[in-house]
Measured scan of single mutants.
Amino acid sequence: PAHPYDRLKTTSTDPVSDIDVTRREAYLSSEEFKEKFGMTKEAFYKLPKWKQNKFKMAVQLF
């Protein structure tokens, strides 16, 4: 299930529990994912792991 970005980011005051914290981005809706990352999930997962992590750090999901 998708969760709002505000509850997934590492600085959230009301974090979602029971998620894989190493894959926070996977819980974003497709729309919100595209808004935050500027690309689709499919394109994101084709990137090298280090680049994925760099993007995730930039949007507080790492």
Rank of each mutant, 00 (worst) to 15 (best):
P1R: 07
P1E: 13
P1A: 11
P1I: 14
A2F: 15
A2E: 15
H3D: 05
H3G: 04
H3C: 15
H3E: 06
H3V: 12
P4V: 03
P4W: 07
P4K: 05
P4N: 07
P4Y: 08
P4I: 04
D6S: 00
D6C: 12
D6W: 02
D6M: 00
R7Q: 09
R7L: 11
R7F: 10
R7K: 12
R7T: 11
L8Y: 08
L8N: 07
L8F: 06
L8H: 09
L8G: 08
L8M: 02
K9V: 14
T10D: 15
T10G: 03
T10F: 09
T11H: 07
T11F: 02
T11R: 00
T11S: 11
T11G: 09
T11K: 01
T11M: 03
S12K: 02
S12P: 05
S12C: 14
S12E: 04
S12W: 04
S12D: 03
T13Y: 06
T13G: 06
T13A: 08
T13L: 14
D14H: 10
D14S: 07
D14V: 06
D14C: 12
D14E: 06
D14N: 13
P15I: 07
P15W: 00
P15T: 03
P15D: 01
V16N: 08
V16F: 09
S17W: 13
S17P: 15
S17D: 13
D18Q: 04
D18I: 03
I19S: 02
I19N: 04
I19G: 04
I19F: 07
I19K: 02
D20F: 02
D20S: 03
D20R: 02
V21F: 10
V21L: 06
T22M: 02
T22E: 07
T22I: 06
T22N: 11
R23E: 06
R23S: 09
R23M: 10
R23Q: 11
R24L: 12
R24S: 06
R24D: 04
R24A: 04
R24E: 01
E25M: 05
E25T: 05
E25C: 03
E25I: 06
E25F: 09
E25D: 02
E25S: 04
A26H: 07
A26S: 14
A26D: 08
A26P: 04
Y27N: 03
L28F: 13
L28M: 07
S29R: 06
S29A: 10
S29T: 14
S29E: 03
S29D: 07
S29K: 04
S30Y: 13
S30H: 13
S30A: 14
S30T: 15
E31F: 11
E31H: 12
E31A: 11
E31N: 07
E32I: 14
E32W: 05
E32Y: 02
E32K: 02
E32H: 04
F33A: 01
F33L: 01
K34T: 12
K34Y: 13
K34V: 13
E35T: 10
E35P: 01
E35A: 09
E35Q: 13
E35N: 07
K36I: 15
F37R: 00
F37D: 00
F37I: 05
G38W: 08
G38M: 09
G38T: 02
G38S: 09
G38D: 07
M39V: 04
M39C: 08
T40D: 13
T40L: 08
T40I: 05
K41A: 08
K41N: 01
K41M: 09
E42W: 09
E42V: 11
A43R: 10
A43I: 10
A43M: 13
A43D: 13
A43G: 07
A43L: 13
A43C: 13
F44P: 00
F44S: 00
F44V: 02
Y45Q: 04
Y45T: 04
Y45G: 07
K46I: 12
K46H: 14
K46D: 11
L47G: 00
P48E: 03
P48F: 11
P48M: 00
K49R: 13
K49F: 10
W50M: 05
W50A: 08
W50V: 11
W50Y: 10
W50I: 04
K51P: 00
K51G: 00
K51N: 10
K51L: 15
K51S: 09
Q52M: 02
Q52E: 01
Q52R: 04
N53S: 08
N53T: 10
N53A: 10
N53E: 07
K54Q: 14
F55Q: 06
F55M: 15
F55Y: 14
K56D: 02
K56Q: 02
K56R: 11
K56L: 07
K56C: 08
M57G: 04
M57E: 09
M57F: 06
M57Q: 13
M57A: 07
M57Y: 10
V59H: 08
V59G: 01
V59S: 06
V59L: 15
V59E: 06
V59I: 09
Q60R: 05
Q60H: 15
Q60E: 14
Q60N: 13
L61A: 08
L61T: 00
L61G: 09
L61S: 02
L61P: 05
L61R: 02
L61W: 08
L61E: 05
F62L: 13
F62M: 13
F62P: 09
F62A: 12
F62E: 12
F62Q: 12
F62N: 14
F62S: 14
